Simulated assay, not measured.
Amino acid sequence: MSITVKLRFFASLREKLGEGEAMALPESSTVAAAREALMARGGAHAEALARGRAVRAALNQKMCAESAPLSDGDELAFFPPVTGG
Results as ranks from 00 to 15, higher is better:
residue 22 A to T: 15
residue 15 E to I: 11
residue 66 E to V: 08
residue 32 A to I: 05
residue 65 A to Y: 01
residue 28 S to V: 14
residue 17 L to T: 00
residue 47 E to W: 00
residue 82 V to L: 15
residue 84 G to W: 13
residue 23 M to T: 03
residue 5 V to H: 00
residue 78 F to T: 10
residue 77 A to K: 02
residue 8 R to L: 14
residue 80 P to K: 02
residue 60 N to E: 09
residue 84 G to R: 05
residue 9 F to E: 07
residue 41 R to S: 11
residue 31 V to E: 04
residue 11 A to S: 15
residue 8 R to N: 08
residue 20 G to C: 07
residue 15 E to R: 15
residue 71 S to P: 00
residue 35 R to Q: 09
residue 38 L to M: 13
residue 65 A to V: 11
residue 15 E to A: 15
residue 77 A to C: 11
residue 32 A to D: 15
residue 39 M to A: 09
residue 5 V to P: 02
residue 84 G to Q: 06
residue 68 A to F: 04
residue 26 P to E: 10
residue 50 A to N: 12
residue 26 P to W: 02
residue 67 S to C: 05
residue 58 A to R: 07
residue 61 Q to W: 03
residue 50 A to E: 13
residue 11 A to I: 05
residue 27 E to L: 15
residue 52 G to E: 15
residue 58 A to M: 12
residue 63 M to C: 09
residue 15 E to D: 15
residue 29 S to H: 12
residue 19 E to L: 13
residue 26 P to T: 13
residue 64 C to Y: 00
residue 82 V to S: 13
residue 20 G to L: 03
residue 6 K to L: 07
residue 58 A to Q: 07
residue 18 G to S: 01
residue 81 P to I: 06
residue 47 E to S: 14
residue 9 F to K: 02
residue 26 P to C: 10
residue 11 A to L: 09
residue 24 A to V: 08
residue 60 N to W: 10
residue 36 E to S: 12
residue 82 V to R: 09
residue 58 A to V: 07
residue 38 L to H: 06
residue 12 S to M: 04
residue 60 N to I: 11
residue 83 T to A: 13
residue 45 H to A: 15
residue 79 F to D: 03
residue 77 A to V: 11
residue 17 L to E: 00
residue 26 P to I: 06
residue 57 A to I: 07
residue 15 E to T: 15
residue 19 E to T: 13
residue 46 A to T: 11
residue 39 M to R: 14
residue 73 G to C: 04
residue 83 T to C: 10
